[in-house]
């Protein structure tokens, strides 16, 4: 974190604001740890709870990594959960032919949907919000079509694939790969730059179209992977698979400190902090017995407040 000690032209109030922006993710994490730690009388850190958190964290962490690239560019994607659901369903159906097809089928499903998203948003220029919203709607319908409304099961032995080493391995791999991709690669640098000023990147001679398409495809692929993971975790695929994913992943990235408008100030550690915060919050709320309704209410409030805090208003003259 870099603080500017010098008398900047903009004045100390901005410096104070920069501090808040930089610190609130950590504050949030501390708050959540304390609140739920005491609120659940320590239950939230029990062995059972930690195991549950690990399961949640796998989804949220990996999803948030993919999401971070989309957010960094100043875009977002409402279809992540539904894509995961569809991928889970296609993977489940694929096991009927051959259990080992589940992983590739799931991933490919996700990639294809991500590709469609990418083209509609980047090439046809339709707003990301409504494109991914429509896509999520269509995916929900697709799940029903494929499954005929039933719950589809996978061969039981696949459940054994979902081990702790696997979870940790996946988290570690994606964590390291994600870090290097986000902070030390051409792709990461350009993505963030696009969020800061797409015109500047365009006028620096970079192939904007390519870089704008990639995050959606990658996010779709990751959603596909998560669909597969869900399958080997629960052994089933239904229309409710992935329903909470989108909100949790988005909130994780935002709570971790990635500004909604993206840009070069986005940092990978936000994904880590945010995942921790959301996982503890989610599990804590479940232990406390918070109803689904209230959980949604709280997540909605968190969403709005986080964005309001981290939104970059400097570049906008007017119009929201």
């Amino acid at each position: 974190m870099r603080f500017h000690m010098q008398n900047s032209l903009i004045g100390t109030s901005v410096i104070r604001r920069l501090n808040l922006k930089a610190i609130f993710p950590l504050l949030g994490l501390v708050f959540v740890v304390l609140f739920f730690g005491f609120g659940t009388k320590g239950l939230v850190f029990s062995k059972l709870s930690l195991q549950s958190m690990l399961n949640e964290a796998v989804y949220i962490f990996i999803g948030a990594i993919g999401y971070a690239f989309v957010l960094a560019q100043g875009n977002f994607d409402l279809s992540v959960g539904s894509v995961m659901g569809v991928a889970c369903m296609t993977a489940a159906m694929a096991t009927k032919i051959n259990p080992y097809l589940a992983l590739p089928v799931g991933i490919i499903t996700g990639s294809i949907i991500g590709l469609i998203n990418a083209f509609v948003i980047v090439k046809a220029g339709v707003m990301a919000f409504i494109t991914t919203l429509a896509m999520s709607f269509m995916c929900t319908g697709l799940i029903l079509i494929i499954s005929n409304g039933a719950v589809v099961g996978a061969p039981l032995f696949m459940l054994k694939w979902y081990t702790v080493p696997l979870k940790l391995g996946v988290i570690l791999t994606f964590g390291i790969a994600g870090f290097f991709a986000f902070e030390r690669s051409y792709y990461g640098k350009i993505s963030k730059a696009i969020g800061s000023s797409i015109e500047a990147v365009r006028q620096s001679g970079t192939n904007i179209v390519l870089f704008r398409i990639l995050p959606f495809i990658i996010l779709g692929t990751i959603a596909g992977l998560l669909g597969f993971i869900s399958l080997i975790r629960t052994g089933t695929a239904s229309s409710s698979t992935g329903s909470t994913l989108m909100l949790n992943v988005l909130n994780a990235a935002l709570l971790g400190g990635i500004p909604f408008s993206g840009g070069t100030t986005s940092k990978f550690r936000s994904v880590i902090i945010g995942t921790l915060t959301i996982t503890i919050m989610s599990t804590g709320m479940t232990i406390l017995g918070t109803s689904t309704v209230n959980q949604q209410l709280i997540k909605g409030l968190v969403f709005l407040v986080t964005i309001a805090l981290s939104f970059d208003r400097k570049n906008l003259k007017v119009i929201k």
Binding site: F129, L247, F260, Q296, L297, K299, G300, L301, F303, L304, I307, A308, F311, R313, K320
Partner: peptide, 15 residues
Amino acid sequence: LKIPSMVVSLGFVLI
């Protein structure tokens, strides 16, 4: 909150 109306509407849907 001074954030885009689209974002506000998304948050409000949840609430």
